[in-house]
Design a protein around this nucleic acid. Sequence first.
DNA 1: AACAATTAATTAGATTTGCTTCACAGTCAA
DNA 2: TTGACTGTGAAGCAAATCTAATTAATTGTT
Lengths: 294, 294
Amino acid sequence: MRQSDLESFLAVVRHGSFRAAARERGLTGSALSQTIRALEEDLQVRLFNRTTRSVVPTEAGDLLARRLTPALADIRASLDEVRSIGGRPSGRVRMNAPAPALDWLIVPHLPEFLRSHPDIAVEIIEDASNVDIVAEGYDVGIRLGLEMAQDMIALPLGPEQDYAVVGSPEYLEREGWPETPQDLTLLDCIRHRFPSGTIFPWRFRIGEEDIAIVPQGRLTVSNARHAVEAATAGIGLARVALPYAQGDLRQGRLVRILDRFSPQLPAWHLYYPSRRHMPPALRAFIDFFMKAAR
Amino acid sequence: MRQSDLESFLAVVRHGSFRAAARERGLTGSALSQTIRALEEDLQVRLFNRTTRSVVPTEAGDLLARRLTPALADIRASLDEVRSIGGRPSGRVRMNAPAPALDWLIVPHLPEFLRSHPDIAVEIIEDASNVDIVAEGYDVGIRLGLEMAQDMIALPLGPEQDYAVVGSPEYLEREGWPETPQDLTLLDCIRHRFPSGTIFPWRFRIGEEDIAIVPQGRLTVSNARHAVEAATAGIGLARVALPYAQGDLRQGRLVRILDRFSPQLPAWHLYYPSRRHMPPALRAFIDFFMKAAR
DNA sequence: AACAATTAATTAGATTTGCTTCACAGTCAA
DNA sequence: TTGACTGTGAAGCAAATCTAATTAATTGTT
C-alpha cells in the first residue's frame, strides 16, 4: 500500500475523472486505472461507479475519501515538518482564490516568495465560486468577508475592498455625468459575466439603504482588465475593484464617478482549516503574504 | 513513499533495534536498513543515532514518530473500515495485558472470537508493567482499576478482583492455621517475583487499615500457576488471584485462609485511546470480550 | 588483552513491481 | 452514423526492492 496510491485515489474523487486525475498526478490514465483496481481488490469493495462518461464514488469510496483526506494531510504535514528541520521550509501549497485577490495581493509578491523559499512549490487555482477548500484538497483560500465555515481560521489580508465606477472623460462629456446610481440606466454599462453565467450586479449605498442594479449595456466581458480597457476606450462605464482602475485614474484616462455611493465592502481574507499541526510550507506562505499585504 | 515504509520506521522506533523491527515486519534487517536510509535521504534529516549496539531516534526521528503514529493509525482504521463494509469486520488488534487478566478474561474466549471473526488478526503481548499503549503501538490494554492516562476510555471487565491466601489442608494441620496476617511470618510463604525483580507484596485489610507484608519463604516463582501447584503439594502458602485457586478449592486440595482480611481490589478494565473513528476490528474485539465477561 | 558474539552497514545479484504503449470497447454529441 | 473521448486490458520494459553474503564496529567474557 503506497501513500501515492491513496493520493491518486483522492485525485480521482476530486476530479471525477481518471484522465484528469492522471494528468494532475503525472501518470497515464491506464496506470491510474490499474492502481484503483488494485485498491478495490485489496479492500474487496467497489470504490467508483464508472460509466464510460462519468466516474462517481460509491458510498464506500465516498467514505474512504472523507476519512483519508485529513489523515493523508497529516502525513504530508508530518513529513514536510521533518524535512523543514534540517533546511528551509518545504512542501506544497495549493491555493484557491478569485482573480482580483490574486491579481493584487498574491501574484505581485509571488516571485519574491518563490525566490526566498526555494523548497516550496505553489499551486494557484483561480476560482470565483465558493468551494469547500477541505473537500477539494486546498491548503488555503481567499474570500471576501468573514462568512467562513466553522473550523476555519480567517486573517484579513490588505485594506477594505473598494469598487469604483469609472468612465473615460470623453465618454462622460459626450453622454452626460450621472449624479445618482439610477442615472446609470441611461448609459452604456460594461457588464461582467461570471463563468456560472450570472451578471455581476452593481451595488451601491444610498443613505442607509443598499441597492443592487443589474447593469444594462452592449458589452459583456468576463475579465476586469478587459472592462477597464473598454472603458478607457470610451465604450461605456465599468465597475471594477479599485486597484484595476488605479493606474488609468492617475493618468487621467479614466474618471471615477458616483464614489459617494460606493458601499464599504469587507476586506479580503486568507482562510485555512484549523488543524493540529500546520504544514510548515503553509505557515511560511501565510506569514509571507500577510506581511506583504501590509 | 510507501505506507509500509513509514510503519517500518515506527517499528524501529518502538523496538530501538533494526533486527527486532525487521522480525516484526517480516523483513531482513538489510531491507529495513535500506528503507530507513532512503527515508532519511528523502527527508534530508538523520532519523536515528546508530551505534552498533543501540538505535536511538534523533530529535527529528522522535518528532516524526509522534506525528506519524496517530496519522497512520487513522489510515489503517479508514482502510479497515472500508474493508469491513462489504464483508466482515477486518483488521488487526494488538493487545497488551498482564498474565492473570489474559488467563481468565481473554484466552478462554479467544477461540470463539477468532472463529466468529475470520478476518481479524489478534496479537497479544503479556506484560505486567504499565506501558503507554499509544506510544508502543497497541490498540487496547487491560489494567486493574481506573488510574488511566487522559484521553483513555476504560470499561470494567468482569467482577471485582479477589486475591486469596491458600494452603493444602495437610500443610495447615501440620504447621498451624494462621489467625491473622501477622501469623504468616511463622510459615512458609510461596513468593512471586516479577520480571522487574521485585517480590509481590501480600496486601491485607485489618479493620480500616491496609497493610502490606513481604512474604518470607524458601520457594519463589514467577507464575501464579506454579505457586498454586506448589501449595497443593503442601510446600507452603500461596497468595494468588482467586480464579487460579478456584478449582483446587472446590476439590478440597486447597483451603482458603485469612479471607476476612483480604482487601477489595478494583476490577480489571479494558482501556483504549479515544479516537475519532474506532477501527472496526477493535470495536468488534471490545464488544465481544465485554459481552463474554458478563 | 584478546576473542567471541551481536548488530548495523554495504554491495551485488535476482526478483518483483509498476509504468507506458498500444489496441479495444463503450458512450455522448453533432 | 461518425468522430471524439474515456476507461480497461495485455505485453514489454525499466527501475525499485528484497535477499544473501560480507564487512565493520562495539560489548561482554575469559
